[in-house]
């Protein structure tokens, strides 16, 4: 009897559903349902007093209208795009360059590569604090070096002109190791015979890079860039820790704005509406990206 039951469980379609059930339940209840719940909050009037009750008046798209008509909206959207585009561009290029560089054999290349990855092991919250120290106007090391070569101190994080570039530098520094690891994993998958063949044909490094290496690691590149876009577009802890979005709105990106609306102003309707806008923008960007670059290449992610 028991052996029958056991074989029934182990061999039928039931195994499949038993495998899926726990994970799917977990994701449905605690990831997808909150996502839908967030959407529902964004079309209701939500205040501190109605937050925990179900008695919230339906207001349609009013929260969205309020957010989009907000005078700051365009500036914050622009900040988000500037932050994302420059971050992704530089973190990818540096990541690829380092991966290529450390793929060569020279003494100590492995320990040195390990040191380059060190930023990855520090919690993002701490990284924000570290860079706040480095960029500090009075005691920061960056100004110390500038003073040494005769340039006056710059208020990196407290002036609207420089705050965004400072936050960008910190974020790029933080994200390079991730890109480097993903690119390295692409490079090691290229068989040595291909390098040998290229060496015999006498190709230059850049010919080899453009005609052999890049095409061979294309799937890795596509996957890395889309992950970069998603992670950067929605990134929050680093900026929050460095500037809280300031000075004024100079480094406020959409996720920071959403957090401020919900948890500083208790304007939950606006906060949740911004979150939905982030999701929609990311979806549009991803779909365009996949259609445009990846086309029919299946299974990139």
């Amino acid at each position: 009897m028991f052996t029958n039951l056991k074989s029934l469980i182990c061999n039928s379609k039931l195994t499949l559903y038993l495998f899926l059930l726990p994970a799917i339940m977990m994701v449905m209840v605690f990831a997808i349902y909150p996502l839908l719940y967030n959407f529902s909050l964004s079309v209701h009037e939500v205040t501190s007093s109605t937050l925990l009750s179900e008695d919230r008046p339906f207001v349609g798209l009013n929260n969205y209208k309020e957010v989009i008509l907000e005078p700051d909206f365009i500036e914050i959207l622009r900040n988000t795009l500037v932050f994302s585009i420059f971050s992704v561009l530089f973190q990818f290029l540096f990541g690829l360059a380092f991966a290529l560089f450390f793929h060569q054999e020279f003494p100590l290349h492995k320990p040195l590569r390990g040191l380059l990855l060190i930023g990855w092991v520090i919690p993002p919250a701490v990284i924000g604090t570290i860079w706040r120290w480095l960029f500090n106007c009075d005691i920061g090391v960056i100004n110390y070096f500038l003073n040494m070569i005769g340039i006056g101190s710059v208020g990196w994080l407290v002036t609207q002109t420089f705050a965004m570039s400072s936050v960008l530098v910190a974020n790029i520094w933080f994200a390079i190791p991730f890109n480097m690891i993903l690119m390295t994993s692409g490079l090691v998958s290229i068989p040595n015979s291909i390098h040998d063949a290229a060496a015999i044909d006498g190709t230059t490094f850049f010919q080899k890079l453009w005609h052999i290496i890049i095409p061979m690691i294309k799937p890795n590149i596509y996957a890395t860039i889309i992950l970069d876009i998603i992670y950067t577009f929605r990134s929050f802890p680093l900026i929050w820790n460095m500037t809280k979005g300031g000075p004024v709105n100079a480094t406020t990106v959409l996720p920071v704005w959403s957090y401020i609306q919900s948890f500083n102003f208790f304007n939950f309707g606006a906060g949740t509406a911004i979150a939905v806008i982030i999701l929609l923008l990311l979806l549009i960007i991803s779909i365009i990206y996949i259609k445009f670059f990846v086309g029919k290449e299946e299974g990139v992610l």
């Binding site: 909150p34 967030n38 929605r234 957090y259 949740t272």
Partner: peptide, 15 residues
Amino acid sequence: LITQMFPATMLLLPL
């Protein structure tokens, strides 16, 4: 995949 596009901090309120 879509859940990945939604920042964890944004799920804060519903969660």
